[in-house]
Design a protein around this nucleic acid. Structure first.
Lengths: 193, 193
DNA sequence: CGCGGGTTTGATGATGCTCAAGCCCGGTGG
DNA sequence: CCACCGGGCTTGAGCATCATCAAACCCGCG
C-alpha cells in the first residue's frame, strides 16, 4: 500500500526520502477502504483527513438548492482528495466526496500533517502539486469563461481522456458544467465530423 | 516601497522576519513602475518576474481566436501578479498582464526566488496564499459550473466589492464570463428588486 | 420477462450572446 | 461657450446555445 505513496513522493521531489522518513510515512498514513457509494466527506462535516488514492475512483461535488450535483473534481489512483478549505480552516465543508469505485486510500489527519511538513521531499512535492493544481484550475476556469460547451469537451478529451473509461457520461457532463443531454449531442456531432 | 511588502509577509506568517532577512527582501525585490496600459507580460513571452503590487491595479487576460479578452484575474495593491505556469516552467505564457492604473510593483526574478525560499516566513506566507488561492479558485469554478450569470454577480459583490470602484463594468463582465450587455441588464434588475 | 441505470432523442423554452443604435459625460479644440 | 468626439454604459431585437422535460432506447442482471 504505502509503496505507491512513497514512490509518488519520490517522483515529485529531487531530495530522496531517508529510511527514517519512510518509516514516518508508513506510520502517519493509515489505510482505509471505501466501498462504492461510501462517503469520504459529507457536506457540513469538517474534513479531518486528506487522502491519497492508491486505487479506485472518487468524486467531489456540491449540491445546489435544486438538488443538482455539481461535480468539481474527479480523482483516480495517484491523486489526492479532500477539501482544503475545510481541512486547513477546520470549518464545515460545502462539498461531498464519495467513492465511485471501490477504493483504497491512505489517510493523513490534520494533526499528523505537521510532522510530514518536516520532511523536505514532502514539502517539495506539495509545492509542485500546488503549482500544477493552480495552473490546471486556471486553465479550466479560462475554458468556462471563454469557451463553448463543445470546446470544453475537446479540452477535456485532451487533458483527461482516462476519465472517460472510469466515470459515466453524466458525471463528465457535470464536471464540464453542462447537462448529460448536451454532452450526448456534442459527442454525436464530434463523431460525425 | 518595501515596507508594504515586508508587513504583508509578516502579516501572513507566524515566524517574524529577522533584520538580515529584511535586508534580503530589500535586495531581491526591485521596484518598477508601470503606466496605465503598459504590459507586465505579453502572451508568447516567458514570465521572468513575479510582482507584488504596492499600489495600482493590474489585469490578467487571455485573448481568444475572435479577439475577445477573457479576464482571468484582476489585482490591486497587496496582491501578487504573474503567470505561474510560465514563471516556473519557463514556457511562453498564454496570458497578458497589463496595468489598468498607474502602478508600482516590486519584482522578484526567477533566479532570486530561490533565495527567498530559504526564509521561513516567506514559505509560510506562500503556503497560506496558495491555500487561499486554491480555495477561492475552486469556489469561482463552482459558480461557473452551477450558477447563473446573476448568481455569479451576486457572489462577486460579496467577495470582491472593491473591484467595482477600480475597474470598468466591461472588465467585471469579462471577469464573470459574461458580456457587458448582460451585466448591465443584471444590474438593472438587481437594483429594482 | 421485467427492472434499473445509463444514454439518447425530440420538442420547447430560457438564458445569455450578437449586432446595432443611442445615451451620458468628460475632454478638446474652434 | 459650444460643438464634437470618444469611451463607457444602456437598450432593444433577433438569434444561438444550452437547459428542461418527457419519452424511448439499450443492456446487463435477477
Amino acid at each position: 500500500m504505502h509503496d505507491t505513496l512513497i514512490s509518488f513522493i519520490q517522483g515529485h521531489a529531487t531530495t530522496p526520502l531517508t529510511e527514517q522518513e519512510i518509516a514516518v510515512v508508513k506510520e502517519l498514513f493509515v489505510p482505509r477502504k471505501y466501498r462504492k457509494g461510501q462517503f469520504f466527506l459529507q457536506e457540513g462535516e469538517i474534513c479531518k483527513n486528506y487522502g491519497f488514492i492508491v486505487n479506485g475512483a472518487m468524486r467531489q461535488y456540491a449540491v445546489d438548492e435544486k438538488g443538482t450535483e455539481n461535480i468539481l473534481g474527479l480523482q483516480i489512483e495517484n491523486w489526492w482528495c479532500g477539501d482544503r478549505d475545510s481541512y486547513f480552516k477546520e470549518q464545515p465543508s460545502i462539498y461531498n466526496i464519495d467513492a465511485w469505485e471501490n477504493s483504497e486510500l491512505l489517510l493523513i489527519s490534520k494533526e499528523n500533517i505537521d510532522r510530514m511538513v518536516a520532511i523536505p521531499a514532502f514539502i517539495e512535492m506539495r509545492i509542485k502539486l500546488d503549482d500544477n493544481h493552480s495552473i490546471a484550475n486556471q486553465k479550466r476556469l479560462l475554458c468556462h469563461i471563454g469557451a463553448s460547451a463543445e470546446k470544453r469537451y475537446e479540452n477535456f478529451l485532451q487533458h483527461y481522456p482516462q476519465f472517460l473509461e472510469r466515470f459515466p457520461l453524466r458525471m463528465i457532463a457535470s464536471f464540464l458544467g453542462i447537462t448529460k443531454e448536451t454532452l450526448s449531442r456534442i459527442r454525436r456531432h464530434a463523431g460525425n465530423s
